[in-house]
Write a protein that binds this DNA or RNA. Structure first.
Lengths: 147, 147
DNA sequence: GTGGCTGCAAATGTTTTGCATCCGT
DNA sequence: ACGGATGCAAAACATTTGCAGCCAC
């Protein structure tokens, strides 16, 4: 929460960028809705509650900034929207990889931590000489509540 | 090739839909460029070579139809375009699952067959009571040629 | 005070839709 | 000849950009 905000402010200052109410508000919404995977429009609507003057363009520009700073990640669930989630990166920049379980009935997205993929990555490098540096894994199905 | 075309024509007739030159041409392009992962615009340009009168809207409508018939699959590689590939589904409807290796340098997409994911799916069902029915797996990295 | 940031509106790029016409059945 | 399919243009959609004014530094 405020740890992230302080970190954000610090990075902005280090880069000579300005700490604005809009930027802090957007980070706060993303941090508060950590598990929601919000679209830009949804972030816009949530920020407007506390800060009605904000423009959608500012939301997009701030999302772009947060992506570049690796404070958030983008997720595409195949529904035509780009969604964003608070980044769970280590201090050292190493990613806490998690996969997404997407419910085809209610649309809910649950995260799932696992490292079995690393074995598969090794297998790929062996068999195809393709050097894997990142992956994106989604499972579609039905959640406990919808079954 | 023509096996797919015949299958397509048969399905169209069964559903009371019309077999048109446009529909056959679009299927042919997708079938010929099986490994290319084309965008709608790219399909449009390719079909225009043999059939210059075609409209982009027809391409989109036919893609939609082919998706519904599960003759093609859509792939989003994260570059903002929706791409389409010829479906490799069994007769029984069971998918020949393959994953995509996307080269971050040249953009080339290679397919990789593997069933290690099934273990991971079992693990998910055990741990979270989430019933998995499909998945979408992409690996990003650098291909042999680019290394 | 200055330059970066913002809000607005206009532009962009992809995909969808309305409608008159066309063509497969 | 009927009704679905097509081509065109306009609309819809998310996202980006240009610019004058504003505010953090």
């Amino acid at each position: 929460m405020s740890v992230d905000q302080d970190k954000f402010k610090q990075i902005l200052r280090e880069k000579g960028l300005k700490v604005t109410t809009q930027r802090i508000s957007i980070l706060k919404v993303l941090s508060d809705c950590d598990d929601k995977h919000l679209t830009a429009e949804e972030i816009y609507e949530l920020v407007k509650i506390d800060y009605p003057e904000i423009g959608l363009a500012t939301v997009y520009r701030t999302i772009q900034l947060l992506l570049e700073l690796k404070l958030i990640d983008s997720v595409q669930l195949g529904d035509g929207y780009v969604r964003y989630e608070f980044g769970h990166n280590d201090e050292g920049g190493k990613k806490h990889h998690h996969h997404h379980l997407v419910c085809l009935s209610c649309g809910k997205v649950v995260s799932f931590e696992d490292d079995l993929l690393e074995k598969l990555e090794e297998k790929i490098e062996e068999k195809t000489s393709f050097r894997v540096v990142d992956h994106d894994v989604k499972f579609y199905g039905y959640c406990k509540d919808c079954l």
